[in-house]
């Protein structure tokens, strides 16, 4: 069976309260956060750190999100500065891509070592 798509008339969006929700799944936030974290130069590897019941690093509540990451960081590197850069970058990227505000980003540096890039 074939269905032809009728010419699309782009109707203007209805008023925001009539428009319907846009939801972003936890794993979407998790993936975006991991990609963003890996972009920080001193970060050598990123793993989402899920809770026991989910492998996803992100948790979305309304328009806010909480993210937990396990990273491995090069050494010697100032770990506080790396963490601050990580936090800023991940929060910016998640906000730009999803419109969600990351209120909390927990970082565990599970592995330290390896040369700086």
């Amino acid at each position: 069976m074939t269905v032809t798509v009728p010419a699309q008339r782009r109707a203007p969006l209805p008023a925001p309260e009539r428009r319907g929700r846009t939801e972003v799944a936890d794993r979407v936030v998790s993936k975006i956060a991991c990609v963003a974290a890996a972009e920080v130069p001193e970060v050598r590897d990123v793993q989402p750190r899920g809770l026991p019941w989910t492998p996803s690093a992100g948790e979305v509540h309304g328009d806010q999100a909480v993210v937990r990451l396990n990273v491995s960081v090069a050494y010697p590197a100032p770990l506080h500065a790396v963490a601050a850069r990580l936090r800023e970058h991940v929060i910016d990227r998640v906000a730009a891509q999803t419109g969600l505000h990351v209120t909390r980003l927990d970082i565990t540096m599970t592995d330290v070592g390896g040369d700086l890039p």
Partner: peptide, 23 residues
């Protein structure tokens, strides 16, 4: 190593120790 309103930062002791030993 850090505990702020925007999240905590932790370093694995064994990970850090390995890096120091390698250094």
């Amino acid at each position: 190593i850090e505990d702020g309103p925007t999240g905590v930062t932790e370093v694995s002791e064994s990970g850090m120790a390995q890096a120091v030993a390698a250094d």
